[in-house]
Amino acid sequence: MLIVENLSCAVLEGVSFRLDDGELVALSGASGSGKTRLLRAIADLDLNRGEVRLDGVLREEIDPRSWRRRVACLPAESRWWAERVGEHFRDPEGVPFDRLGLDPAIPGWRVDRLSSGERQRLAILRLLENRPRVLLLDEPTANLDPRSTERVETLVREYLDSDAASCLWVTHAADQIARIASRRLQLAGGVLLEEAA
């Protein structure tokens, strides 16, 4: 369970909410409303004030590396630093590439050969390799076709159920929110509003 209390940073003001185990919550808001900032602040990438607790433990009591493995943030655009796909995974053998419709031989591929949709799906698998307790996903299906979108939704749902993890999912699509989310949070001018899905 993730509890965020009074989180403030450059554009956010006193944001509070909680994510229960197994819960998937949608986050939406106009561009510039601070959605990305909120995810970054929870992952502790930007300077911020306020309390964030994971399973009762305060963020500051956890080493920043372990914190980010447990509270995993997926940026809207994925980044790659090595030449081959496989070098970005700890154990490429154990990654279910086929679950997202990717070629099982993809670890041997060159990163610069990937399409943006492939990168997006690979980034999700790369993030899940850490087996995080909380997923903070910034428009994870923005570049994907309906079929891949459905695969990602199913994979994340199953992961949340099997690991009792929770997820904050940034999306604008009303149909997607209705499909996946149990609740919906909305950011407007750095302040959080809650609406039932």
Partner: peptide
Amino acid sequence: RDVIEARLMLGHGRDEAIAD
């Protein structure tokens, strides 16, 4: 910056994130 932060988000340490 984006690459360094992408690595930090995956739980990499300072030395890993800035290795290149």
